[in-house]
Design a protein around this nucleic acid. Structure first.
Lengths: 196, 196
DNA sequence: GCCGAACCGGACCGGGCGGTCAACTTTGTA
DNA sequence: TACAAAGTTGACCGCCCGGTCCGGTTCGGC
């Protein structure tokens, strides 16, 4: 068991994670460790003390965000209207991404075991959200939790091209996609749902 | 006016473009010029003779693909069923992307003037495709050509996570999104369509 | 078949990157 | 307050990348 971090180390860790998120959001995956350190106001060596490699740093950021999403999902699981809840979850996910688009980090940390573990938990939460909505007839019955896990980030991706001009544009595409998920007017799907 | 390329230069140019597309598809934007040259069976210097910078090479690849899409769109503009035509166009776009996902190149070459020009032409083609479908009542009347321009690539993005396991999965999400574009069961959209 | 222009290739350059390390500073505990 | 452990730092390393350059090769008009 590792003892708690020293006060200064804990502070630096927080600064570092925040600065890294900002820097990645601005410059993409190519953001350099040196720039991140400078932004956090710490030395480059300190970065590597906290995270052995750049990949570890990325994984830590992703972990934070996935965790937040799981919490939101679990809260919504306790709400009344299951259809609303699902839509709200998607909205929350999109909002997180809109604030700072770090989707590429998710892809970059795909191999990480910890990230996979937590993402599986997120997947489970989404499964329940969808199952509930489906039973209530709020979404068509041929969509699965895995579908929603994949669809989740699409609105931001679509709106990404006009990000600065219309930062809330993702709402439009979320609505279109959600209409496609409704039972009314649904056409049979040409491809089976993906396995895990 | 530049005279035609010498026979060997023309051949190398073709080899180079093909190899670059493959290499980018496999290794992403970070694919190195040296590797591309090796794959094409030519020297590194030759790459830079054909394209002054890496960005120029990327733009050339993107240009080829956008051109192909414009042609497909213009053909479909002459078909009978406007709704089918739109769906077919989206299918063609997705298929191109599924073969080799080079969406990141599109983003990387966003600044290029030539690319912008051709993309504007593609946009026009899509506008007409959508307008026709809308008049026929095949799609809801609050979606625009710009919407479809943005939505076009979403199915591949969504299916990208399971690319090798289910290469045709994009068809599923294209169908869901297209259901969302239909007039039946459409709910009002919470955000106006983007301008150009 | 000759010859100049076009083309090819790979050694080379400067720069920036991720990551290391050893000297130094801060922390917190006894 | 004394001191060992934990944390910090930035100069430094090796590597690889995009891009240059020039001696050698190939093409094609005459």
């Amino acid at each position: 068991m590792n003892r708690p971090l020293r006060a200064d180390a804990a502070r630096n860790r927080r600064l570092l994670l925040a600065a890294a998120a900002d820097e990645f959001a601005e410059h993409g995956l190519e953001a350099s460790i040196a720039d991140i350190a400078k932004r956090a106001g710490i030395g480059k060596g300190t970065v590597f003390r906290h995270f052995a490699t750049k990949e570890d740093l990325i994984a830590a950021i992703v972990l934070d965000r996935v965790e937040a999403l799981i919490e939101t999902g679990e809260d919504l699981l306790r709400s009344e209207n299951s259809g609303e809840a699902l839509l709200e979850f998607l909205t929350a996910a999109a909002q997180q991404r809109q604030q700072r688009d770090l989707s590429f980090l998710q892809r970059a940390s795909a191999g990480n075991a910890e990230v996979s573990r937590l993402q599986a938990r997120l997947q489970e939460t989404i499964d329940q959200l969808v199952e509930r909505a489906r039973e209530d007839g709020a979404v068509r019955d041929d969509v699965t939790g895995t579908d929603l896990f994949l669809l989740m980030c699409a609105p931001n991706y679509i709106a990404g091209y006009a990000h600065t001009a219309a930062p809330e544009l993702w709402r439009r595409y979320l609505a279109i996609i959600f209409d496609g998920l409704r039972p009314e007017g649904a056409h049979p799907l040409p491809h089976p749902a993906p396995e895990r």
